[in-house]
Amino acid sequence: MSIQHFRVALIPFFAAFCLPVFAHPETLVKVKDAEDQLGARVGYIELDLNSGKILESFRPEERFPMMSTFKVLLCGAVLSRVDAGQEQLGRRIHYSQNDLVEYSPVTEKHLTDGMTVRELCSAAITMSDNTAANLLLTTIGGPKELTAFLHNMGDHVTRLDRWEPELNEAIPNDERDTTMPAAMATTLRKLLTGELLTLASRQQLIDWMEADKVAGPLLRSALPAGWFIADKSGAGERGSRGIIAALGPDGKPSRIVVIYTTGSQATMDERNRQIAEIGASLIKHW
């Protein structure tokens, strides 16, 4: 067993022997301040990774656009098919120029040779490549099948209805392509620590998230040296922004954090800054 596999296998073990965790309302004060600064709703939840206990939450059962955070769930569904012998990570998928959609920095470079399922998941999570996500959605049967996968996990809230990039439209009061912070946090925890996926697939999923290259201005910008984070960000229309993450000190994750916002007129930089400040408060009061 590799060191990384050992780390993920012992996530519940280490967490069980940690000192009790206590909620700190100071972080919620910052979440509410972010709402004021952005002029928009902000949803927040913080779960203990081992027990699933909610440590703090704000608007945990209000719907927010998922945006690209759905790509972690998508690759979880792909990995479940791999575990069941219905898919192979090494299978190569070929596609054409007509398949390319807006923001496809990886797939646009491989029109000639195609990409493997493993490479597509890596591109979808680490670079948020939209064509990679659409190609992977095709392998599982489309958005409705991802929703069905989530329902089978016990998540009857999260739903995907459309493809990239239309799913980022974020129309107010439109339930399409949305989740709730509580539902997303619980589902992410199941994917990373539950028995739904094999140990190898859980490790692969967290490795992809740990290698995320496009979430630097968010929670990662607030992390002290030595902290662990595996995350996936999302951005959408109407001032929408979000991030889902597993993080913790001492090089291992111990909490799940989900943050979503929508309806702001603020710039992307300002949305990023507010999420980073929430992260800084979380870490300060850990």
Rank of each mutant, 00 (worst) to 15 (best):
L74S: 13
P60S: 09
M180Q: 11
I259Y: 12
G248P: 01
Q265H: 09
A276D: 13
S221T: 11
L28M: 15
T179R: 03
A222F: 14
P217S: 08
A183W: 06
D36V: 03
T126G: 03
P60A: 06
P181M: 01
E56H: 12
R255W: 09
R189C: 11
W163P: 11
L219Q: 13
L188F: 13
E210F: 12
A148T: 13
E210A: 13
S233Q: 04
D207F: 08
V29M: 03
L47H: 09
I171Y: 07
K190H: 15
P143A: 08
G141T: 15
M209P: 01
I140W: 02
K53R: 11
E56N: 13
P65T: 07
M209G: 06
D212I: 14
Y103H: 13
K284L: 08
S51I: 02
E87Y: 14
M67E: 11
A266W: 06
E175H: 12
T27F: 02
P105L: 15
L146H: 13
T147I: 04
L74R: 00
A124K: 02
R255E: 07
R63F: 11
S254I: 13
K213N: 14
P65G: 06
S51V: 01
P224K: 15
R271T: 06
N50V: 08
L49I: 13
T116R: 03
K30E: 10
E87H: 04
E195T: 04
K109S: 15
C75S: 12
Q203E: 12
D99S: 11
D129C: 00
A123Q: 15
G216H: 08
E119P: 15
T262K: 12
P253V: 13
A225K: 14
A245F: 09
R189P: 12
N98Q: 00
L191V: 07
E46R: 07
R271F: 02
T179D: 03
E35T: 10
T187D: 13
I54E: 14
K213T: 09
K32P: 05
A246T: 06
Q204N: 02
E119V: 12
G251I: 11
L191N: 08
A132F: 06
C75V: 15
G263L: 15
R220A: 03
L205V: 02
F70H: 02
G142K: 02
L47T: 08
N50L: 10
G39Q: 15
I275L: 14
R176G: 10
E277C: 14
Q274M: 14
L146A: 14
L197E: 13
A182N: 07
T69F: 02
E175P: 12
Y260V: 05
G43L: 01
T178L: 11
R118Q: 12
G52C: 04
A266T: 04
V258R: 05
P65N: 01
S57I: 01
Q265V: 10
R220D: 07
R91E: 04
I140P: 12
D269N: 04
D207H: 11
M67K: 12
V31M: 02
G114T: 08
P60T: 09
Q97H: 08
E46I: 10
G90C: 01
A280I: 15
E26N: 15
D33C: 02
F58Q: 00
R91I: 08
L49T: 06
A185R: 05
L137F: 11
D129V: 00
S96R: 00
L79W: 15
L150T: 14
A40N: 02
T131G: 08
L79S: 14
P217K: 08
V214M: 14
A170L: 09
S128I: 09
D113L: 00
Q37S: 14
D161W: 05
A266M: 15
R220K: 08
T198M: 13
V82K: 15
A222W: 13
N98G: 02
S221L: 06
N130L: 12
E87K: 03
A133L: 02
A225C: 15
L188A: 08
D161R: 04
L100T: 03
S80K: 15
S233T: 11
E210R: 13
L146M: 02
L219G: 07
A77M: 00
V78A: 08
P105K: 15
E169Y: 07
D174R: 04
S281R: 08
E56Q: 15
Q204E: 02
R255I: 04
H285E: 06
H24K: 15
G251N: 02
R241M: 06
A170F: 14
V82Y: 14
V117A: 06
Q88G: 13
G154Y: 13
K213A: 09
G85F: 14
K109A: 12
L79P: 10
Y44S: 08
E195Q: 12
P165S: 02
L247K: 11
A246S: 05
G242I: 04
L199M: 06
Q37N: 09
R273L: 07
P143K: 11
G114L: 04
N130I: 15
H156L: 06
Y44M: 03
G234Y: 09
E56T: 14
H110V: 04
G154L: 06
L74H: 14
K32A: 07
K144E: 07
G263F: 11
K71C: 02
S240W: 03
V42Q: 04
G242T: 03
L192V: 02
G52P: 08
L38C: 11
T179C: 12
E145G: 11
M209Y: 13
R162K: 07
S240K: 08
Q88M: 08
L191C: 14
R220W: 06
I171M: 03
V214E: 14
V257M: 10
G154P: 08
I54K: 14
K213D: 14
S57R: 09
A40K: 14
C121E: 04
T158Y: 09
V72L: 05
G248T: 08
A77W: 00
E35Q: 10
P224L: 05
A215I: 11
L111P: 04
K32M: 12
T158E: 05
W208S: 00
G154K: 15
Q274E: 06
N98S: 00
L89P: 06
E145D: 01
K30W: 15
Q97Y: 06
T27L: 05
L223Y: 14
R255P: 02
A84M: 10
A123E: 15
T112G: 09
T158K: 01
D113M: 07
G226Q: 12
A133D: 05
I171K: 00
N98K: 14
N130K: 15
K190Y: 15
D113G: 00
T267E: 12
D177E: 11
R220Y: 02
T139N: 04
D33P: 08
S264L: 10
Q97W: 14
E270A: 14
T179Q: 02
T107D: 01
C121S: 06
E46C: 10
G39S: 02
T27I: 13
E102I: 14
K30R: 15
E46W: 12
Q37R: 12
N134R: 07
G90N: 06
A200Y: 15
K252D: 02
N130E: 05
Y95W: 11
E108T: 01
E164S: 01
G76V: 02
F58K: 00
E164T: 01
E145P: 08
R189V: 14
K213I: 10
K32G: 04
K71N: 02
S281D: 10
L38W: 01
T193S: 08
G142S: 05
E175V: 14
G114N: 07
Y103T: 15
D48K: 14
T158H: 04
R63S: 13
P224M: 01
